[in-house]
Amino acid sequence: PAPEPAAAAPAPATSAAPAGAHVQTAAMPGTITNIHVAVGDKVEVNQPVMVLEAMKMENEVVAEQAGTIASINVAKGDMVNPGDELFSIA
């Protein structure tokens, strides 16, 4: 039999964040249970932005820097893995 064709390399991941924006990623696997902000909202350092439930514990994801929410890349109920983009701040 003929050998199987090599699988195509996956496309490089593209970011939904605008150029120059600070991207925050998930620190652990879990489910997004609540989102407290919308695109365009101003946030301060350590302001709660969303809630990530992992192992039956709710973990608040807070803004790492002050600015304006430039993108939200998840929705309530989404499952995320470590490193997945959650939101960006410009």
Rank of each mutant, 00 (worst) to 15 (best):
P1Y: 14
A2D: 15
P3H: 09
P3D: 07
P3N: 07
E4C: 07
P5K: 11
P5I: 14
P5F: 09
P5D: 14
A6C: 05
A8T: 10
P10W: 02
P10F: 03
P10L: 03
A13S: 13
T14Y: 00
S15H: 00
A16E: 08
A16F: 08
A17T: 00
P18Y: 01
A19W: 00
A21D: 00
A21C: 03
A21G: 01
V23W: 02
Q24S: 13
Q24M: 15
T25L: 09
T25F: 08
T25S: 13
A26M: 15
A26H: 08
M28C: 09
M28F: 15
P29D: 09
T31A: 09
I32Q: 08
T33E: 13
T33Q: 05
N34V: 11
I35S: 05
H36A: 15
V37S: 08
A38I: 04
A38Q: 12
V39C: 03
G40D: 03
K42D: 13
V43L: 04
V45M: 07
V45E: 05
N46D: 14
P48W: 13
V49K: 02
V49D: 03
V49Q: 00
M50K: 12
M50E: 11
V51Q: 03
L52Q: 03
E53R: 02
E53L: 02
E53I: 01
M55L: 12
M55I: 11
K56R: 06
E60Y: 03
E60P: 05
E60S: 11
E60W: 04
V61C: 04
V61P: 09
V62Y: 02
V62C: 11
A63P: 08
A63Q: 06
Q65K: 14
A66Y: 04
G67P: 03
T68A: 03
T68I: 08
T68V: 07
I69Y: 01
S71Q: 00
S71I: 02
I72S: 06
N73W: 03
V74Q: 04
A75T: 15
A75Q: 12
A75C: 12
G77L: 06
P82F: 07
P82R: 07
P82G: 09
G83K: 12
G83M: 11
D84Y: 13
E85M: 12
E85W: 02
L86D: 08
F87Q: 05
S88W: 00
I89G: 00
I89A: 01
I89W: 11
A90D: 15
A90T: 05
